[in-house]
Design a protein around this nucleic acid. Structure first.
Lengths: 207, 207
DNA sequence: TGTACATCAGTGAACGCGCGTTCACTGATGTAC
DNA sequence: TGTACATCAGTGAACGCGCGTTCACTGATGTAC
């Protein structure tokens, strides 16, 4: 078997997703269509519809896999860190590194899909990031009421930098160590602000 | 004249851009092609090539106009503010408001164009934001050496939030006043960090 | 243990569509004499 | 002031292409008896 030409493919669904991810790595979201991917896997376009409702849902699945790959890299980066602050930095850095090292995958991960995936992301990049914020809360550096706001802020900063730095704009930010480290420093400052929101209120006046 | 059917259109270039922006407002980047826009302006597709080298360069021009509209709204928002901090907040808020109020235009403004525009953005959203950071520097709240880093950080945060909040992700951040205000507070904290980088270094140890 | 048959996972040809772009052309405009 | 002509800005038909999707089909697989 193995190299025998088989009529039945074996695991076409997985093969399509793999081909999609490979193409995403190489060229981004441009070619993630039914005909293209069917050709890549040496299968007729019709066969795709045995495994996906439509081209759009195939794309949604590929996009989800890209997000999950991002989440895995974030988990891997966080694994070795114990300190709350370092855990957050590791998450942020992994997010940014993913965007810089795999711009195609990153773009595909966040293309606007008409159709959402039917299962939840697992692991979920958003959850990994939020968990790192919850850790900060557990360490009493922020309050429970702040968690959502902080998560939005942190996510926005990291995602924005990743998007801009990985883009084609001539004004795009530098991507050296210093810039990224500085960005995470400033993000950390924004997260804990002036200790906590309450103490900030006490120490400062209005505005 | 006026409602007379003219063979010569008059100002087809401008008409194409206007139609493109209108379509961008309504439906985003999906339909900004030669055939579609030619039809919208009631002109044969070929006529487009009298004014643009290719469909791609037409798209690049539309995208540029969208960015310039963003920049104008930022300028308008900043006009009434004198305080450095409020000027920055106004810029950031205008950026976010634009993304929320005109998601189509915002998406078009930042689509990855293969081909860059031939003239510089004018006004340029990036420059407006950077100018607001320079103001902060002039007010001695940050140092000249920090300006680029701060600009990257501020841009990333605001752009990231705008992108995520305007997207379709079910986890997307809330877009109420409180969330946005909090985001700008935290961004401000990150900008000025602990007063200035030097004083921070003095007060804190390594890491 | 072998055979009949339902089910499943593919094939291959064809569809209509919109895309960007080209061609040879023609109607309108403006300028030189 | 009128006419001839170059130039410019459009027309309309046609290209090849890749897209998503459908159709009637056939080869392979697995299960019942």
């Amino acid at each position: 078997m193995g190299n025998m030409k088989k009529y039945h493919h074996g695991n076409l669904e997985e093969a399509l997703l793999t081909a999609g991810l490979q193409e995403a790595k190489a060229r981004g979201p441009r070619n993630l269509g039914v005909n293209f991917l069917a050709k890549a896997v040496k299968v007729s376009p019709t066969a795709v519809y045995r495994h996906f409702l439509s081209g759009e849902s195939l794309r949604a699945s590929i996009s989800q896999q890209a997000r999950e790959e991002l989440a895995r890299q974030m988990l891997k980066a966080i694994a070795t860190q114990t300190d709350v602050k370092n855990r957050f930095r590791a998450v942020g850095r992994a997010y940014i590194n993913f965007a810089l090292n795999e711009p195609g995958l990153f773009a595909v991960a966040f293309v606007a899909c008409e159709e959402g995936p039917q299962r939840e992301d697992s692991p979920s990049a958003w959850m990994v990031l939020q968990d790192s914020i919850l850790d900060i809360c557990n360490a009493k550096l922020i309050e429970a009421s702040e968690v959502q706001q902080v998560a939005s802020f942190a996510w926005a900063t990291v995602h924005g930098f990743a998007t801009l730095a990985g883009g084609s704009d001539p004004r795009r930010p530098k991507t050296n160590e210093k810039t990224i480290s500085d960005l995470l420093d400033r993000t950390w400052s924004g997260i804990i602000q002036l200790g906590s929101k309450n103490s900030a209120k006490d120490k400062l006046g209005a505005n």
